[in-house]
């Protein structure tokens, strides 16, 4: 059974229809990349899946359970995690404190108002594990706003991974990165454990083909193709959209 099933969702902003009957299936552990030209509706699709925007019609299922009506903060507890296109971290907090906040979301003591958060041994230990696993222990006390852009994007992924999600949605993980940082990030994404399924919006084709098991092409808010990397690479319509100048409307 598929882990995430998106069924015919549509979304309009006033008169502008951004998503039209979009359907999508993601299996456990799959690397699913969504591509499409600017304005295709990729980020809107993410916002709709994670309930940051309400959908007009259709439904989203996670593990067979409909999630499209649930409040956004429930999704993390059901195993869905996401990053944001723009850096969306806590700039005035240190790397370590950012991780604390990500970890505490699943702790029973998250409503505790008396004992200091840093006195919790489990959270300190898990934070250390994460810092070591990602080899950033030496940056732990640095305020996030003082990190390099690439490091911030890494932390973004790492925070989303902190809750041990079943599925992780990455919104343009390499946007704004230098070629070296892009390569690093691509490598990091490939190293993520197969216990988590990935849905990635990405523009860089090298990254797309490096990580994808399956690719969905979105254009003008519609899915025009969903298939293996080879199918997508050799598809005429996709070539048309990406390389044909876009004068001709797709069939």
């Amino acid at each position: 059974m598929s882990l995430l099933r998106v069924e015919n969702i549509s979304k309009s902003f006033k008169t502008l229809q951004v998503l039209r009957d979009v359907s999508l299936e993601v299996n456990p552990g799959e690397r699913h990349v969504i591509i499409g030209p600017n304005g295709a509706g990729k980020t809107t699709l993410f916002h709709c899946i994670t309930n940051i925007l309400p959908i007009d019609s259709g439904a989203v299922y996670l593990d067979g359970k409909e999630i499209s009506k649930l409040p956004a903060h429930h999704l993390a507890h059901l195993g869905m995690s996401r990053t944001f296109q723009k850096n969306n971290l806590f700039g005035d907090l240190t790397v370590e404190e950012n991780i604390h906040l990500a970890l505490a979301a699943k702790k029973p003591y998250r409503y505790d108002i008396f004992s200091p958060l840093i006195s919790r041994t489990d959270i300190r230990k898990e934070t250390n594990d994460i810092l070591e696993q990602w080899e950033i222990s030496n940056r732990r006390h640095v305020k996030v706003k003082h990190l390099s852009y690439g490091e911030q994007r890494l932390l973004e992924v790492l925070l989303a991974m902190a809750s041990n999600p079943k599925i992780l949605l990455l919104d343009e993980p390499t946007s704004g990165m230098s070629p070296a940082e892009t390569a690093q990030t691509s490598e990091m994404i490939q190293k993520l454990p197969r216990s988590v399924a990935l849905v990635v919006v990405e523009h860089d084709m090298d990254v797309v083909f490096a990580i994808a098991d399956r690719i969905t092409v979105l254009h003008h808010g519609e899915v025009i193709l969903s298939g293996s990397p080879d199918e997508v690479r050799n598809n005429e319509v996709v070539k048309e959209i990406y390389f044909g100048g876009g004068a001709k409307k797709h069939a």
């Binding site: 940051i52 903060h73 999704l75 995690s81």
Partner: peptide, 8 residues
């Protein structure tokens, strides 16, 4: 938005 996405 981020805190909500983290599950709070």
């Amino acid at each position: 938005a981020r805190m909500s996405a983290l599950g709070y």
